[in-house]
Every structure is written in structure tokens, then in C-alpha cells.
């Protein structure tokens, strides 16, 4: 039973570009939704498990985009290598900021604000650093179809890369959740002082969670840059982190499949609203999106994932 469920779901995901009729626009939107879902899943490490309200996703996403794009344009380096190097650069920045933050015990709202500040600092640095980025878009050379260089005109190419990344992220998150790391992190989230007294190196494990999250988020940035074909400092967007954290909280903080499910549903609604309303009244779709977010948090504070779980329990008992 469980096997067939998984197999049919996997088959659906694999064949989705065909189902969408290989329409580039729809595949592009689907890939975007999956890309942001990867970030939500990566946030599971720092937010869901370690309980740190990180809003800095935009910093790592932007770094991944800039490093991957820059290497592709100026050094003709394959995007695949760029993804790894971008991820490593993001890990470096995450370490430089994360180490003192955890060392000095930044928590809750202050950690959230510091991570949001980091996004804007990096955005301005790259806006001023005209050798690498600057105020103009930098375009990545066009290739009809070059999988080794990681550039193609057809969007299904990026769909499968993103799908692969999503599966890897799921696997890593699942392993972390089941393994020692997950137990350590959850104990830090629930009662940091108790965890410390039991001899858990809380700073070290929080850093491990932060570095994993920053690496994966940077990879999404690299894929994004190659897919849209340019990069720009505006990709250091504070909004990405805010969106990620709210979706994860609405989905159920610390819940495993609630946040990614919520991400796919909410972002699909958001894209649908944008397509239908964005052209006539800009911003209206986001007003509705914001109203949905607030309603969900006010009326289901535990999140959608746990709520669905209790529903499934009820159905099974009957």
C-alpha cells in the first residue's frame, strides 16, 4: 500500500512536465514553487529542528545565484561546479555570522532581525561591488541545450534539477530527523539549558543546522540564476526568508511534511492569484495571500500539518 502510494506520487512528479504539456511557462512556475519548497524544507534544519527563527534565506539564495552566475559568465565554469562553490560560499558567510551569533546567545526576535539584516547588508555590498554585480543585470550566455554547462532553453531541464534537489533535501532532513543530530537539535529547541547540561554542544549543532540550511538555499539560488538567465543584487531579497518562515510556521513548526505541503499549496494559490489579479491591480494577490497567512496562524496556531494528522487519525478510527 505504502509502496504504491509513493510510487504513484513519484511517477506523477516525474511526468509532471508532460502533464503540463511541456508548456514552458507552466513548467517555469512549477519549478519556482518547487524551488521555494526546497528552501522551506532546508529551513527545517535551522527552524523546524533547531528552533531558530532564521529570516536570512535571501542572503544565501542571492549568494548562490551570484557565485554560480559569475563563474558561468566570466570563467566559463559549469553551473554544476558553481552550485557547489556557491553553496560553500554561503556556508562561509553563515559561519562568519552564525558563529558569533550563537556564541553570544542571540535568540528569538533578535536572531530573526540579525538574519534579516544580513540579507540587506549583502544586497547593498553587491550593489556597490560593481566588479561582480552592481546595479545592472549580468546575463548568463545563452545555450540551446548544454547539460554539462547547466544551461538550457527548455524549462523542464531545471524542473528535473530542482526535483532532484528536493529529493536530496527530503532525504537529508529525514535522516537528520531520525538520527542523533535531530534528537540533539530538538532538545536544543525545546529546552536549550537542559540540553547544555546534558553535555550537548548546543552551539556546534546549531551551527551544523545553519550550515546545512545555507548550503541547500544557495544551491536553489544557483539554479534560479541559470533558469532566468541573469543575476542581480535584488536576488538578496528579504522577502524570501520571511515567506519561508511564515510558510513553515503555518505548516506546523517542527512538523516534517506539513511545511512542504503547505508551501506547495500556498505558493500555488499565490501564483494563481498573481496570474489572475496581478495584471489588473498589482499587489492585490499579496493582500489576499497575507490575509490567508494571518487567518491560518490565528485559527490554527499549531499549524496545518498537525491539524491534518489529527484529521487522518479520526478518519482511521472510524
Amino acid at each position: 500500500m505504502r509502496f504504491w502510494q509513493l510510487a504513484s506520487f513519484g511517477g506523477f512528479l516525474l511526468l509532471l512536465p508532460l502533464i503540463l504539456g511541456l508548456n514552458d511557462y507552466y513548467i517555469f512556475l512549477t519549478t519556482l514553487i518547487l524551488l521555494y519548497t526546497v528552501i522551506v524544507m532546508a529551513w527545517y534544519f535551522i527552524g523546524g529542528l533547531a528552533g531558530q527563527l532564521d529570516l536570512g534565506a535571501g542572503a544565501y539564495h542571492g549568494l548562490g545565484a551570484v557565485v554560480t552566475g559569475y563563474l558561468m559568465i566570466y570563467y566559463n565554469v559549469s553551473g554544476w561546479i558553481g552550485l557547489v562553490l556557491g553553496g560553500l560560499a554561503a556556508m562561509g558567510v553563515a559561519f562568519i555570522v552564525g558563529f558569533p551569533s550563537f556564541r553570544f546567545g542571540l535568540k528569538e526576535v533578535w536572531y530573526a532581525l540579525a538574519s534579516l539584516g544580513l540579507v540587506l547588508i549583502l544586497q547593498k555590498i553587491f550593489l556597490l561591488w560593481t566588479d561582480v554585480a552592481g546595479p545592472l543585470e549580468r546575463y548568463i550566455p545563452f545555450r540551446e541545450f548544454d547539460p554539462l554547462y547547466m544551461r538550457a532553453r527548455a524549462k523542464w531541464f531545471y524542473y528535473y534539477i530542482t526535483l532532484g534537489l528536493l529529493l536530496i533535501t527530503f532525504y537529508l532532513a529525514h535522516r537528520a530527523k531520525r538520527g542523533k543530530l535531530g534528537l540533539y537539535l530538538v532538545s536544543i529547541r525545546d529546552e536549550e539549558e537542559a540540553a547544555e547540561m546534558l553535555g550537548i554542544d548546543t552551539r556546534r549543532y546549531k551551527l551544523v543546522a545553519l550550515l546545512t540550511y545555507s548550503f541547500i538555499t544557495a544551491v536553489t539560488g544557483g539554479i534560479y540564476a541559470s533558469m532566468v538567465g541573469f543575476y542581480h543584487p535584488i536576488l538578496f531579497d528579504g522577502w524570501i526568508g520571511i515567506q519561508t518562515a511564515t510558510i513553515a510556521i503555518v505548516g506546523g513548526l517542527g512538523h516534517f511534511w506539513g511545511p512542504p505541503l503547505t508551501s506547495v499549496i500556498l505558493l500555488s494559490i499565490a501564483e494563481y492569484l498573481r496570474i489572475n489579479l496581478g495584471g489588473t491591480i498589482p499587489g492585490l494577490h499579496q493582500v489576499i495571500f497575507g490575509a490567508i497567512l494571518i487567518t491560518a496562524i490565528l485559527f490554527k496556531p499549531a499549524g496545518i500539518g498537525p491539524y491534518l494528522e489529527s484529521l487522518i487519525e479520526k478518519v482511521r478510527k472510524r
Binding site: 527563527l53 528569538e108 526576535v109 530573526a112 520571511i242 518562515a245 511564515t246 510556521i249 503555518v250 513548526l253 491591480i281 498589482p282 499587489g283 492585490l284 499579496q286 493582500v287 495571500f289 497575507g290 490575509a291 497567512l293 494571518i294 496562524i297 490565528l298 496556531p301
Partner: peptide, 23 residues
């Protein structure tokens, strides 16, 4: 409520106000 719920709700208010202004 715990700080996290407050942050989540007020972030929702951020989205709402910012886009009402945009509209």
C-alpha cells in the same frame, strides 16, 4: 502567546500592510 506566534502573526500584518499600500 509565545514569541514565535507573535512574530508569525505580525509578519502576516507586514505582508498585508505593505501590499495594501502597493494596491
Amino acid at each position: 502567546a509565545p514569541p514565535l506566534s507573535q512574530i508569525a502573526v505580525t509578519v502576516g500584518v507586514v505582508v498585508l500592510l505593505r501590499n495594501i499600500a502597493l494596491v
